[in-house]
Design a protein around this nucleic acid. Structure first.
Length: 479
RNA sequence: GGCGCUAUCGUCUAAGGGUUAGGACAAGGCCCUCUCAAGGCUUAAAUAGGGGUUCGAAUCCCCUUAGCGCUACCA
């Protein structure tokens, strides 16, 4: 039975790297008919915030990612503490009464040898330890990492393969803090054991921590789950993504607010550090579930490509456009409606259904829609430069003639794609100008700009009652 | 400093002993075309460096270099 968990600590917004970790867990669970667990690792009371919890839920909701079970570590503290006490009772851990060092002078062992343990505390007699604890002296419980036998801790990572580390290189890490709260290592392992997690899928920054976790599982008398570590997402400068250094690009809500489709963003994130091993780039959620596996996961960190000028990875944008093109008109219209309304336009469903196909392959994000489709919704066109009405290799007089001809043609033409096509082309021939020279002034008159969807469809959707006044107005502007 | 991990076009990646080292994004060009897109074709662009092993190495081994991670009573 596959049971996986995503265990963020609620100390910030939902980071895109965290989102990717959730997605890989989720994909793995869905692929194997397993259980997805969301667990808030909130043992650090100093740094947890409700705002962060909200941001995590917000982000996951937008990405449309679900979970089957939900826990908070803060609700399970007693179990963690008991687990730590049990390890102490077994003699596999000991009390360390060393006063907490000041957080200010904490450059970790810079230049020096690795800190392993304080032998005085490690070798404290049980009587002495019990006496001092009973007297109320504060202490932390440390794991007594086996040192004598030259032991090597090993595990097999599903992504990184065989891993081993000598216990001589593992320090006596803390299990329980002097305030009685468990450390991350303790709480995480106790929960993973208690929740019968089958696969721990998490960032590679935990790869070396895993040796400690294997030791804890062992002390707990629990067979360690399988581990799969994921390469990290990093910035173009090689540093890990941080809000302070890199800004909003690290937060998933940024992409939601930029008009991304959740499925496209999920697709993009999956392609960072994982590959389906064929040449597919655009994959639907179902396709991802069908092919996701650890064999496709890379071992080197992936760069999210952004810059100050282009804050969003170009490939993410391209993938989004691919998903946009793949949508049905109904789906597209539904996604577009709130965006268009947000821009202040009144949007009728039937009308939107006709507009949507015309802008579908002209937008890369939903947010592009208001600018691309404005003339479909504006009662009065925004001011434009009348010079735009003048076609290539033409002059104002030619533009005026074309527009005059357009008016008379459109007064009687059948307002369908084919009808307009035939009528306007015939008009161009009659005028003795190229089709493009005829169409360009009309396009600008009707759309207010040179770049727009194909003319006949556009006129058809807009209708005669909107087109004729706009063209007459353009003729005025030309004078 | 110690320990661990990693290294293919600018970026995401494929190839895991024998390939002209493939694809995608981005960039350039051409085609299509009523503009813009979309689409098609195309150009440029990579195995970090050095040693081995082998008939043959991007691929296996070692060293160097670089990057990242861990080295907290953070997670």
């Amino acid at each position: 039975m596959v049971r996986v968990r995503f265990a963020p600590s609620p100390t910030g917004y939902l980071h895109i790297g965290s989102a990717r970790t959730f997605i890989f867990n989720w994909l793995f669970a869905r692929r194997h008919g397993g259980t997805m667990i969301l667990r808030l690792d909130d043992t650090d009371v100093e740094r947890n915030t409700q705002a962060s919890v909200d941001s995590i839920f917000d982000g996951l909701k937008w990405l449309d990612l679900s979970w089957d079970e939900y826990y908070r570590q803060s609700d399970r503290l007693q179990m963690h503490t008991e687990a730590a006490e049990a390890i102490l009772a077994k003699g596999l851990a000991y009390r360390d009464f060393t006063p907490m060092t000041q957080p200010s002078d904490d450059k970790p062992n810079e230049g020096g040898a690795a800190w392993l343990c304080n032998p005085e505390m490690r070798e404290l007699s049980k009587d002495e330890s019990d006496r001092r604890a009973a007297a109320g002296e504060p202490y932390v419980i440390r794991y007594r990492v086996p040192r004598d036998a030259g032991r090597v801790v090993t595990f097999t990572d599903e992504v990184y393969g065989e891993q081993s580390k000598s216990t001589a290189d593992i320090e006596d890490f803390a299990l329980l803090r002097s305030n009685g709260l468990p450390t991350y290592h303790m709480a995480s392992c106790a929960d993973d054991a208690d929740l019968r997690i089958s696969h721990i899928i998490r960032g590679q920054d935990h790869l070396t921590n895993t040796f400690k976790h294997v030791l804890i599982f062992e002390a707990l008398g629990y067979e360690p789950p399988k581990f799969a570590h994921l390469p990290l997402l990093i910035a173009p400068d090689g540093a890990k993504l941080s809000k302070r250094r890199h800004g909003p690009v690290v937060s998933v809500t940024t992409y939601r607010d930029a008009g991304f489709l959740a499925q496209a963003y999920v697709n993009f994130l999956c392609l960072l550090g994982w590959s389906p091993k064929d040449d597919r780039e655009k994959l639907s959620r179902e396709e991802l579930v069908a092919v996701f596996g650890f064999e496709g996961v890379n071992r080197s960190n992936a760069v999210v490509n952004f810059s100050d000028e282009d804050p969003i990875d170009a490939k993410a944008l391209w993938l989004n456009s691919q998903h946009l093109y793949a949508m049905t008109i109904q789906e597209l219209a539904a996604a577009l409606k709130p965006v268009l309304e947000g821009a202040g336009y009144t949007v009728e469903d039937d009308y939107l259904l006709k507009v949507a196909p015309l802008i579908q392959e002209r937008i890369k994000t939903l947010n592009d829609a208001p600018a691309v489709a404005d003339f479909f919704f504006l009662t009065e066109l925004a001011p434009y430069d009348p010079a735009e009405l003048i076609p290539q290799k033409g002059d104002a007089a030619m533009a005026a003639r074309a527009l005059d001809m357009a008016v008379s043609t459109l007064e009687t033409a059948e307002f369908t794609h084919d009808g307009l096509d035939a009528a306007l082309r015939a008009a161009a021939v009659e005028l003795g100008v190229k089709a493009g020279q005829m169409f360009q002034p009309i396009r600008v008159a009707v759309c207010g700009r040179k770049n727009a969807p194909p003319l006949f469809e556009t006129l058809e959707v807009l209708g005669r009652d909107v087109c004729l006044p706009r063209i007459r107005r353009a003729i005025e502007l030309l004078k």
